[in-house]
Design a protein around this nucleic acid. Structure first.
Lengths: 335, 335
DNA sequence: GTGAAAGCGCTAACAG
DNA sequence: CTGTTAGCGCTTTCAC
């Protein structure tokens, strides 16, 4: 069934080299031959074999994208940016969902290397995987989104997490809050740590000592995480006047727990998140949050891949740090 | 930098066939040689070239997945099912977002064919693209999720949309509703038409004549679509007592429009959706909806790809029709 | 402007 | 158990 360049050559009465040239827009073919060849290709439904081409050109026009949780709306938006930018450069993307599973992440990683992707974007890489990935930095461009190896000797694009944490906390403090909880977040990830530093910086600046009982993290940033942490916290009778969730999902879980425990938002407790995933803007939710430019994060990551290919992978690293932005809605209240 | 099987062969002092065999778990190699080879591969960080392997084995271990809107949480869940099932069979997936754009869909389609994916899953294919795809049915297994070519001469997995429409309408009618709007949905897609038929069947059975002014569709199934349709409808003073949204997103948009126009949900107007995307279960939203088994839809689509490969692509088609399920929450009310 | 030939990295007969 | 050889479908010299 699958026709090859040779079949076309026979039909067109030319060598298969000529077919190849016609297909690839080489100017070494006469208009007439080219048209004839192209015509035939179209008529018989010939489809060039990208695998064979890849073998000889040593290119796949493919990049890989690793995300931890495709059901967190944050990642589809990042993926959209990645995809659009890749597509505009003639590349396609392998989107891999690791499900917070380190083994799955590693096996995907190896698979992508075998498939010879020409670049790799890793969103929210977990700490445990960083060593593995660092080994490959000299083989192909790897770009981290958000969390990244601590030494920063890598390509990355991230929102300024310190500033994000700062903005959220500052906003709450200006509303009069002092008993502020900071919940969720994978303790070990630097995007989390930076947000927390922003939090602490504001607290310190305002002479407020953070209550260590109100800073609680968890393995995954999901609704249930926020829910469980908050529920426990409230049950232990640690009642903040405001809660900062490590991301919107966590904040949403916090809201749920609060309401179940009889605290209303924002009257009893203010809640703020990070990311600004699409549906928190729904009138019924209306979560105040610190937005990340999700689409741009993805787009810039792809840009960096192409920049990095032009330079020494070993010691030239590209970074982009984007600005977070407060989106004021109705889940926080003056105290 | 990139080592080949020949480099390994030299280092191990064997032929490169032997290396290949060692790598592929052939039993025609002595334990000792195998271990030696594997050791070396590991030490030098050899990674087999899947492209080259693919060329000779004529396989890519890859399938393609086309979705219209990755930011609609419905699709990530489907994608999860696809990915898990594919991965368990040693396959990876190219996830492509077509953004409701027919050109982009077609170019992705051709690209995937060139990349020699071994199967293709198309979620919610638009009517205009069906002809193109039908041409390829004999080349590789194509499985549709939801919408599909009208003649049903194809592989597909879908929720029973007629039943879904039926269940939703029946539920509303039993609550006493007669003035029921049915909004959103791409008019031409069969998944939409089937839902609508379910709707009409219930109406007829109960001797209710549907108000044609309350049946309105739109190009995309998104929040804004539901919002715009509903807003317009209410402004024209066509006020239903219940609204069925073609999917949850549309229903959400409807709710937003209703509330903006001063109608409260469910007191003034009941609203029901389809799909049960994750976040409509949030306490603040609590949308009553007819659920689709999203994850299973994806999983079964992959199953079908593998079944289809074993049979005649031209005239053996596989189909799976899954059961919808009413998820009763609080957006609908007895009248 | 066209064709012949080599070779990309690998697997799969076929021999030994 | 191991090696030799051919060839997957294509691009790319190098000739003509």
């Amino acid at each position: 069934m699958n026709l090859t360049i040779k079949d076309i050559a026979k039909m067109a009465n030319v060598s298969y080299t000529t077919v190849s040239r016609a297909l690839n827009g080489s100017n070494q073919v006469s208009e007439e031959t080219r048209n004839r060849v192209l015509e035939i290709c179209k008529k018989v439904g010939y489809s060039p074999n990208a695998i064979a081409r890849g073998l000889v050109t040593n290119s796949t026009n493919t990049i890989g994208l690793l995300v931890p949780d495709i059901t967190n709306p944050f990642y589809p938006e990042v993926a959209l940016g990645v995809e659009d930018e890749a597509l505009s450069r003639g590349y396609s993307v392998f989107l891999c969902n690791t499900g917070f599973n380190i083994d799955r992440m590693e096996s995907y990683f190896k698979l992508l290397i075998e498939k010879r992707v020409e670049g790799l974007i890793i969103a929210s890489v977990p700490e445990e995987a960083k060593d593995l990935f660092e080994l490959y930095h000299k083989r192909l461009p790897i770009v981290y989104i958000g969390s990244r190896p601590d030494n920063n000797r890598c390509n990355y694009v991230t929102t300024d997490n310190f500033k994000a944490g700062y903005i959220a906390t500052d906003y709450l403090v200006k509303l009069g809050h002092k008993k502020i909880a900071f919940i969720g977040g994978i303790g070990i990830s630097n995007s989390y740590r930076e947000k927390l530093q922003g939090f602490k910086a504001v607290m310190e600046k305002n002479g407020i000592i953070p209550d260590i009982e109100l800073i609680r993290n968890y393995h995954f940033n999901r609704i249930e995480s926020g829910y469980l942490i908050t529920k426990l916290m409230l049950k232990e009778n640690k009642i903040p006047t405001a809660i900062i969730g490590a991301n919107d999902l966590v904040a949403l879980g916090a809201i749920q727990a609060c309401e179940e425990m009889g605290f209303s938002i924002p009257d009893d407790i203010s809640v703020i998140g990070f990311d600004d995933i699409s549906y928190v803007s729904l009138p019924k939710i209306n979560l105040t949050t610190v937005a990340q430019p999700k689409y741009d994060l993805g787009k810039l990551a792809v840009d960096i891949i192409f920049k990095a290919r032009g330079s020494n992978l070993e010691d030239t690293f590209f970074k982009e740090i984007l600005e977070p932005k407060l989106i004021e809605r109705t889940s926080c209240k003056q105290i």
